[in-house]
């Protein structure tokens, strides 16, 4: 589905990603673990084309996408849910969904506001409420729903559980598994290990802009977890 090879990305003179590589198979949920500043968000932004990588290759459904602008990447069926949610606060829930709307994609049942409100009942209660007045949890739901309106075959979720109450996190986890059943591949960044364990199929650990560990989530041993924690300390 998605293959990233030897990605090097800079902000100004500072190199953020060093030969970053990862792969997501169709129908899989892959988790990137790593502390703040490890390079997870930059990886995602490079994939989407929001920042242009200096070198490396990004293949989506067998096509190179590393030079495409974000809107073209999105049109190919790759949806992006950013870390800070970035709801259009002056737009209503329905208008937010309208912005995300893309033509239907062959082989996928198209998402409509009605279908999304089934998935996220909270949003359906007040479809004309302004995005900016929603609670944190509702905003997280809306940002996922908005991305789904583009009928993506794969979505990238940047730290979806951050700042949410545990009960909402649990709800979110179930939603993500439901999306997997719908056939959507998912790449997500997390710092919450429990959450990653619950939803993920495979895991990568990111450290200083490259992958330092990779395994199936079931094999993510206590040892590797220790290593992950150790890196968090070492990184300071």
């Amino acid at each position: 589905m998605l293959q990233v090879e030897d990605l090097n990305t800079f902000y100004g003179k500072a190199q953020i990603l060093f030969d970053m590589r990862l792969a997501v198979k169709r129908g899989e949920i892959v988790v990137l673990l790593g502390r703040n500043g490890a390079g997870k968000t930059t990886t995602f932004k490079s994939i989407m084309g929001i920042v242009r990588p200096q070198s490396g290759k990004i293949m989506f459904k067998g096509r190179p996408i590393q030079t495409l602008p974000p809107y073209k990447t999105c049109a190919l069926g790759l949806g992006y849910v950013p870390e800070d949610r970035r709801i259009f606060s002056g737009l209503s829930i329905l208008e937010n969904l309208e912005v995300g709307k893309q033509p239907p994609r062959a082989g996928l049942e198209p998402w409509t506001p009605a279908r999304l409100f089934e998935l996220f009942p909270n949003l359906g209660e007040r479809p004309h409420q302004r995005g900016g007045t929603l609670s944190g949890g509702e905003q997280q739901m809306l940002t996922i729903a908005r991305t789904l309106m583009g009928n993506p075959e794969m979505i990238i979720l940047d730290e979806p559980s951050e700042g949410l109450a545990p009960v909402i996190v649990a709800q979110l986890a179930r939603t993500i598994l439901r999306l997997k059943q719908e056939g959507v591949s998912i790449l997500l960044a997390e710092q919450n290990l429990n959450f990653a364990n619950y939803v993920g199929d495979r895991v990568y650990i990111v450290y200083h802009g490259s992958i330092c560990y990779e395994s199936a989530i079931a094999e993510l041993s206590a040892e590797a977890y220790e290593k992950y924690c150790a890196l968090q300390i070492g990184g300071g």
Partner: peptide
């Protein structure tokens, strides 16, 4: 940037 990433 966000609306770009949503395909606009």
């Amino acid at each position: 940037e966000m609306s770009d990433a949503l395909g606009v």
